[in-house]
Design a protein around this nucleic acid. Structure first.
Length: 442
RNA sequence: GCGCCCAUCGUCUAUCGGUUAGGACACCAGGUUUUCAUCCUGGUAAGCCGGGUUCGACUCCCGGUGGGCGUGCCA
């Protein structure tokens, strides 16, 4: 029998990373075995389900490249089948009607078999529950609508699901679901319950802990390939030392044997590192596009900026970008004159004894250059250092701060070349005017 | 409360009775004849506690502690 799995989110909000990781594992498992990966929208909670949320699920899957092999199944459209199943259960004596609580009306209960239930979980091992801990439960509400357990199981039957891969929070439900499958007289699927993603306190990872939804990562400019890779490795370890893997490699290696059963914490620092690895792998044009997007959304890119100039800045930044959110602050000086000054660096580099004099001399020599490109600029700087008998760093650092306001950035000479003569000379003059008289410590 | 589950560096993890407990991120130090980043080299850092079983336990068993999940006419 061919393998069929499904991702079955309820469209009641944004797609949580724990959820999407379940989708990733389902997808990986299906692709590994050449099976089918299906999507089912569990929209039976009419109160909370929204069309926007459905679109959110579709977008998240598309963004991460989690393609499904058949059109999405909407649970609300399966109502007739749910009702049929209930009739069948009623006829066979597996279900009965009754009242519960003080809400009045009549609900339909599923009658648990009265025996212990055991199943093999692909990640958690043998799971067992005693009969006395398994109570009858409602499968149809007093208003006639089926409850999750019933709908979920019946849909899995109609969709021919062979393996149910979902979050750890569903383990307890599994015993009821197995009883349901048996009562319906159909094969019980195999199960794999994934550990939860938790925060530093061991609590479920939530919005309070930072980016918690797929949309958050996307909005911040993280790459889908990086998120996919990172999430796949949260709880799953193919052994070996390789962590940056292609989809093909992940598909080939994926097995539940290597999925851990303990919860994992999302380490944003490691994720940013991985994102940086993927950024470096990006084709230049792709990098430019996303780089531009990051700057534009942060309002750091003035309209009318020269295309070529922008491209040169992008090239300079490609190899040193770990995540797009950090970009605006690092390159603002390329695009505007009122960039921020890092006061600590200003103090350290510009207020240093002798810095102003060197800066002034450097400006003088730069202004005399015929060709304002990296090579001549570098030669001029080395020459000045030699003439003054100072380390080149004594000049490099003040120049960098003077033109960028920062202590870090691309290689200085390439950076000066891209900035161009006008910006460089005027900024050096400005820096001298602002800080030239501030030398301290001597 | 009851039921189920989980427990290796700060984090993600390898280990499947015998290892100097390995790797990755982060961090620290040095190098790559300018910073930062990249890259290279080196370093700090771990088996929750207590009992067993065994010649020998991170690994198996029991208990404790801590944490998670479940206990809906939500999904």
């Amino acid at each position: 029998m061919s393998i069929r799995v499904r991702f079955a989110p309820s469209p009641t909000g944004q797609v949580h990373i724990g959820n999407i990781r379940a989708a990733i594992f389902n997808w990986l498992f299906a692709r590994h075995h050449g099976g089918e990966f299906l999507l089912r929208i569990e929209d039976t909670d009419r109160e909370r389900s929204t069309a926007e949320a459905v679109q959110g699920v579709l977008d998240a899957l598309a963004w991460l490249g989690l393609n499904y092999d058949a059109p999405p199944v909407y649970q609300t459209a399966q109502l007739p089948r749910h009702q049929e199943a209930v009739e069948q259960l009623l006829r066979a004596g597996h279900a009965y009607r009754g009242s519960k609580g003080d809400e009045g009306g009549e609900v339909t209960f599923f009658r648990m078999p009265g025996t212990d239930i055991t199943f093999e979980d692909s990640v958690k091992g043998t799971m067992s529950k005693k009969a006395e801990d398994l109570k009858d439960f409602v499968i149809v509400r007093s208003n006639g609508t089926p409850v999750f357990h019933l709908a979920n199981v019946v849909d899995d039957v109609t969709m021919g699901i062979t393996h149910v891969i979902r979050g750890d929070d569903h383990v307890e439900n599994t015993f009821r679901h197995i009883a349901l499958f048996r009562a319906l007289g159909v094969p019980v699927p195999a199960y794999a319950h994934l550990p939860m993603i938790v925060n530093a306190q061991g609590k479920p990872y939530s919005k309070r802990d930072g980016a918690a939804f797929v949309g958050d990562f996307r909005a911040k400019g993280f790459l889908p390939e990086a998120l996919f890779n990172f999430l796949a490795l949260l709880g799953w370890s193919p052994g070996g030392d390789k962590e940056i893997m292609t989809r093909r490699e992940m598909i080939d290696l994926f097995e539940f044997k290597q999925v851990k059963s303990s919860p994992a914490q999302m380490d944003m620092r490691k994720f940013e590192w991985m994102n940086g690895e993927y950024i470096r792998l990006l084709p230049e044009e792709d990098f430019r596009r996303q780089f531009r997007q990051a700057l534009e959304s942060a309002g750091a890119l003035p309209s009318g900026t020269d295309e070529l100039y922008f491209n040169r800045v992008a090239t300079l930044m490609h190899s040193r970008t770990r995540s797009f959110p950090e970009s605006p602050a690092l390159v603002a000086f390329f695009f505007r004159e009122d960039f921020a000054w890092d006061e600590k660096v200003v103090k350290k580099r510009l207020h240093k004894p002798g810095a102003a004099a060197l800066l002034a001399a450097m400006r003088e020599r730069f202004s005399g250059l015929d060709c304002f490109t990296a090579d001549p600029l570098e030669k001029a700087l080395h020459a000045l250092a030699a003439d003054k008998g100072v380390e080149i760093g004594e000049i490099i650092h003040p120049v960098r701060v003077a033109v960028s306001g920062l202590g870090v950035g691309p290689g200085l000479f390439e950076m000066l070349e891209v900035l161009g003569r006008d910006r460089v000379l005027s900024r050096l003059a400005t820096a001298l005017a602002l800080h030239g008289g501030n030398e301290s410590g001597a």
